[in-house]
Design a protein around this nucleic acid. Sequence first.
DNA 1: GATGAATGAGGGTTCATTCAT
DNA 2: TATGAATGAACCCTCATTCAT
Lengths: 203, 203, 203, 203
Amino acid sequence: MKSLSEIRRAELRRAAFAVLQQQGMAGATLEKVAAQAGASKGIVLHYFRNKQEVFEHAMREANAQLMESIVLRMRQARSPQERLFAIIDGNFAEHFFQPSVCQGWLSLCAAVPHDKTLARIQRVIHARMRSNLVSALKDLVAAKDIEATALGITTLIDGLWLRRSLQGERFTRREALEQMEDYVRARTGLALGLADAFRQASP
Amino acid sequence: MKSLSEIRRAELRRAAFAVLQQQGMAGATLEKVAAQAGASKGIVLHYFRNKQEVFEHAMREANAQLMESIVLRMRQARSPQERLFAIIDGNFAEHFFQPSVCQGWLSLCAAVPHDKTLARIQRVIHARMRSNLVSALKDLVAAKDIEATALGITTLIDGLWLRRSLQGERFTRREALEQMEDYVRARTGLALGLADAFRQASP
Amino acid sequence: MKSLSEIRRAELRRAAFAVLQQQGMAGATLEKVAAQAGASKGIVLHYFRNKQEVFEHAMREANAQLMESIVLRMRQARSPQERLFAIIDGNFAEHFFQPSVCQGWLSLCAAVPHDKTLARIQRVIHARMRSNLVSALKDLVAAKDIEATALGITTLIDGLWLRRSLQGERFTRREALEQMEDYVRARTGLALGLADAFRQASP
Amino acid sequence: MKSLSEIRRAELRRAAFAVLQQQGMAGATLEKVAAQAGASKGIVLHYFRNKQEVFEHAMREANAQLMESIVLRMRQARSPQERLFAIIDGNFAEHFFQPSVCQGWLSLCAAVPHDKTLARIQRVIHARMRSNLVSALKDLVAAKDIEATALGITTLIDGLWLRRSLQGERFTRREALEQMEDYVRARTGLALGLADAFRQASP
DNA sequence: GATGAATGAGGGTTCATTCAT
DNA sequence: TATGAATGAACCCTCATTCAT
């Protein structure tokens, strides 16, 4: 059971991430965050110490949304390969792999080098992602290749997100998933079927 | 023969990119740019119409520095494979694949969605990189795979730059080059030797 | 019942007009307006969107002060002639027909051609003045002369205000009222007695 | 024979008054003055000590243009009444009684209270206008009414200029001349025929 | 004489943050 | 808890003015 104040905080950090998506870090003011949450101007700093803290929680929110996507898929995963599929596919969930969302995420990444807390959060997020991937890869690739493969996957995911940010709809979700599929196949020999939804006919 | 004013403009855009590296977009003020260039505050807007324009030229500067790295290597390339090496290796030149440089670059990328000119510049940069890669890959991979491979390479490069931004020295140039080497080998069968400088002993 | 914020806005627009009187439009900064109101610089733009809006309200304030003078006299007017007297005399109220006030007003007039809202306000003000005059003149002059006479009166008033701005105390209120008296008498045959307060002896 | 530098100064003060007409005092920068004169940015302050001086000469220029109008008409005046006509009509010369010109003039008037030199120039201009009018009125009205009548005429002229500034084309030259005609007739009994050009048929 | 580079002061505006209600 | 008034710092930008060529 959540307290009222926790609900309010959740609303606000959702709003913060939403504003970030639309306006980027430069255009993200506390007033806009409040407006996005349908609240009054002064409220934001009742729940957060300062602006930094607001956007630190926005990064947590962003990651929470991503994890939700992944966990949803994880529940139905019955094998290491399905777990690997779940992790990767979760990163490209249709409602999530959107230009605006990627842009919001990118805004936060660009702030990481100048905010220690943001850096710490990012470290935790990355560690968890790596840990999930390593766990899934344990039975799929040679032990000595696990770390490098996991790193390669997260890096390519990041690259694809960056590309989506820069090119918007001109870079499609399909292209992204095909890149991931090709990459995984080339490095592990596995066919995850990430882009299958787009394939018209199979030979 | 450069005019005096062009020299000044070059100094300023170098300064702008330098400030971006140290402070990010949020902390990048025109005053700091001027100070970095050893000039007075007013001069910056004597050469550029406004702040936007300054940082648009900073992106051009960043790309120019990258191209310099690549062109240098390209001159000694005698085969398609050496050209492919040159392009990729140029992206990881020691003085260039630095946390601060990557962070400056990332700051600009994060601003792309909110600045049409920045977006246009980015598009041009990306088009050239793709064109270079496609040209080098023409004789190295099957025709149908050229585009996807080129895209994959640029995307992984971006991802590695992003990782360098986020993790700083904790993510090494060696790791980056090994990822690139593995990726290229897995997708094209080629051994470029990107990480050879780091290899202690040969088998 | 005025809200607190309306009181503050009224204070600020009074301050804005006061600054205008002392410094003219060129010297009228928001900081001085704030200081005049005994407030901080930031507060001015808390209540008004920008500098333009501040001085648009300053013009409303100026007109409000004029109308107050006129309305006060209107209340005691029992005949068309007394109404005519009230309107004209109100324009030369002792506390109002001051060099500084006229100069403030002139500053605003000079800005009218470059500010649409100011122009609109001016139009409304002028329309009301004309309407008041026309109404008072209806029973005093031939129908065909009403409009021209009303226009003549307002124009001469403006001219006298302008003169007061330019010459300050060297152009006296008495001279102004005598000019008005002469003008009205010449054009309508009426003796309003505008300058009677100054007349030492009667013939 | 004018020196080259005097020609340049004349060009610049014409340009200054032109800029004032279009942009008002707030928008009148030295750079625009230079541009208007087809000269380079720095040149203005080679010929004038500072901005104030530039616009002081702009006022002289404005008055010179007015005097030109009047002198032209004066040359053909053969009687006091024709001289009176010349003075008044000169103030409403078609190319001169334009909204923009009146606005430029008004901008200067609004600056008079805050610039001693401007005030002095204005005083001289007004004195000359008064002197011209007094001289023309000497044989037309009773001695005791000369001063007041002269003052009334200049004041109404100012008022009509002000109205033209505020209302632009919506207040026509014809209306202005009719007001002057009516005023002069009412106060002196003279029919100058100022508005005759507009009269279709005579009785 | 003429140009335009360079400076720096100052103003409008935005915004995080604090405070009183 | 919630509101929004109030503050003040900082930034972008404009411009008068000076200077070097």
